[in-house]
Nucleic acid binder design. Structure first.
Lengths: 219, 219
DNA sequence: TTTCATTTTCACAATTTTGAAACATTTTTT
DNA sequence: AAAAAATGTTTCAAAATTGTGAAAATGAAA
């Protein structure tokens, strides 16, 4: 889950943004002035910062200079809509510049775009002690790489994307193998067993009798 | 020098953009309809595409689907300013979305931002003990120059720009060789082997069975 | 034309993945 | 409790994929 810092002194706008971020599934914190923001940035890790320019104590530009060397992406969020302001903000290293008032949906789409550009977006699925990196097609458990074959990986991905949902054997087979399922083979079972063994997930990959399988992890 | 493609059917706007790009020192070409654009994209290399949505023959969205797998950054440039349009464009994979009429200076600043984030403006890529100089087309490892042939260099660059991502053989072949991949040749494998040997990267250039190859380095 | 570096093809080797078969075990139904 | 149905396990060889060495093709430079 991506962590976002909101730096903004108008509490109404903070609340507006918060609601949007929560709905989209981001973790967030906020700071109401520049000094508080600097403090948070120093002590915590963020994937993205939403930054107002006009702030008490330390303004957005000053803060930007402080953030830049840390290479955390920044979206300016401000009432100053003059082209010269936008150019200044972007030249300073911001990744986007949104003028108030804005629509939350556009903000969310632009956040997604910036995170995607930085490869910080949803290329990873974390399930308790296991991390699946979809782009790298790798799986790490407790810091150790688990080698999976292509079919095993695809199967795991399918289970992971539908965690805590019982999936029909037919569904699993058809989606992973891309061909119709005729029930007289032990192929799917075999792959499930191999996954269970490799991940030590005998307990987490549950058999749902007469239905199929379910990956049971913390929600 | 970065190469930019303008896809836009209003000649007045093309001229406006051209003037800006020229002043800022970019190389550019333009297409007045979607079909012409697709043709250019197929035969030439661009670092960025400025894309109008409403176009004759093939619209911007359709073109976007064609561009996306090639990972060329795109800025939508359009009169459609509704939030839903912006969200759609950005979700499709665009890197920015600018509503007409716009100011050229803002466009230039946003182009700069996108190129900066894609490391397209950078001339060096450093991967642990190896430095790739894109302009000089040279590779240095532990201070010593490694001589690579053109194909080897292009292949390495492709892997380096997508480090820690498993790339399909088809993708690699098509992007490095610029022609369609028909699976019955060992050419790609051979070049991979040569790269591994020359860089002593047997362990870093991983084979991803049934998929392709992946350059695995520190993130 | 000859030369030389580069790229590709070919044939085969080595490796990895996969699923069939046969049988064991568990769960549900009768 | 027995029968039936479904799922789990083990083994192993075929199939698919990738690696490799030698030789041929290509193409630019001398």
């Amino acid at each position: 889950m991506n962590r976002i810092l909101i730096v903004e002194d108008e509490i109404a706008i903070v609340e507006l943004i918060q609601a949007g971020l929560a709905k989209a599934g981001y973790a967030y914190e906020y700071a109401l002035d520049g000094a508080a923001a600097a403090d948070l940035i120093e002590h915590r890790e963020y994937d993205l910062i939403l930054l107002d320019i006009m702030l008490p104590k330390l303004d957005g530009y000053e803060l930007m200079e402080y953030i830049e060397p840390q290479r955390i992406p920044v979206i300016f969020l401000t009432a100053r809509g003059a082209t010269s302001d936008k150019v200044k903000g972007l030249r300073m290293g911001a990744d986007d510049y949104i003028v108030k008032p804005f629509e939350v949906d556009e903000l969310l789409a632009r956040i997604e775009t910036v995170l995607r550009r930085y490869n910080k977006s949803q290329t990873q699925i974390v399930l308790e002690d296991v991390t699946i990196d979809i782009e790298a097609r790798s799986v790490v458990k407790d810091g150790a790489v688990i080698e999976l074959t292509p079919k095993e990986f695809d199967l795991l991905l399918m289970l992971a994307r539908n965690k805590n949902t019982a999936l029909y054997r037919e569904t699993l087979f058809e989606r992973v193998w891309g061909e119709e399922f005729m029930g007289n083979t032990r192929t799917l079972d075999l792959h499930i067993q191999r996954l269970r063994k490799k991940l030590s997930w005998q307990d987490k990959i549950k058999t749902v009798y007469r239905i199929g399988y379910k990956l049971e992890v913390e929600p």
